[in-house]
Simulated assay, not measured.
Amino acid sequence: MSPRAIIKAAEWTLTEETAEGASRAVFLVECLTCGARSEAVNNEPQPVEMWTLRHTGLNPTHRQFKLTTEWLWRVCPAPGNPYFELEQEAES
């Protein structure tokens, strides 16, 4: 006998995480030639851009990089979702 599941539809909203202290984005760069990595930086890509240019300046043949960006999201119940009313009550 197969397990059964009941799935109910409810509306949800996908938004950017805005909780206090949450980073909007995190940036990290890795050199594809040697594997060297920049430090992860919150919210501002310029430090990893500068790291990339300095790395190539010190290693002229290292010209390919991989940028990894983390963007934090939150899923919230939309109006009409039963969890929406529960969260509204909890916030009051």
Rank of each mutant, 00 (worst) to 15 (best):
M50S: 11
A90F: 08
T33H: 03
T69H: 05
S23C: 07
L14N: 11
I7G: 01
L58W: 07
E49Q: 10
H62D: 04
A10V: 11
P3F: 00
C76A: 15
A25M: 06
C76F: 11
V75R: 01
E16N: 14
I7Q: 03
L53G: 02
C34A: 01
P82D: 00
L58P: 09
K66F: 15
N81K: 00
Y83L: 13
T33Q: 04
R4M: 09
S92D: 13
V29K: 12
L72Q: 10
H55T: 06
F65I: 05
R63K: 15
E87A: 11
V29E: 14
C34S: 00
F84D: 08
M50F: 10
T13H: 12
C34W: 00
E11L: 12
V26A: 05
A22S: 11
L14I: 12
V26Y: 07
F65P: 04
P82K: 01
T13E: 13
A25K: 08
G80C: 02
R74H: 09
A25L: 06
E16M: 13
E16A: 15
G35C: 03
V29L: 11
L72I: 07
E20V: 09
L58C: 14
E44H: 12
N43D: 15
A9E: 09
F84I: 04
A40C: 00
S92V: 04
T69W: 04
F84Y: 15
V48G: 02
E49P: 02
F84W: 11
A9R: 13
T18S: 09
V29N: 12
T33I: 03
V75H: 01
R4E: 09
P47S: 06
E16W: 12
A36Y: 07
N42M: 07
A22P: 04
S92K: 08
L32C: 11
V48W: 00
E16D: 15
A78G: 03
V41Q: 04
V26F: 07
M1I: 02
C76V: 14
S38P: 00
A36N: 06
V29F: 13
A9W: 04
N59F: 00
L67I: 11
F65H: 04
R54T: 10
L14T: 13
A90M: 06
E30K: 14
L28H: 08
N81I: 04
E85W: 10
C34P: 00
H62F: 01
L28V: 09
W71N: 13
T61P: 00
T68I: 11
E16S: 15
T69E: 14
N42K: 10
C31Y: 02
L86T: 08
W12Q: 09
T56L: 01
V48K: 01
H62A: 05
G21R: 03
G21V: 03
Q46A: 08
E44A: 11
E16L: 14
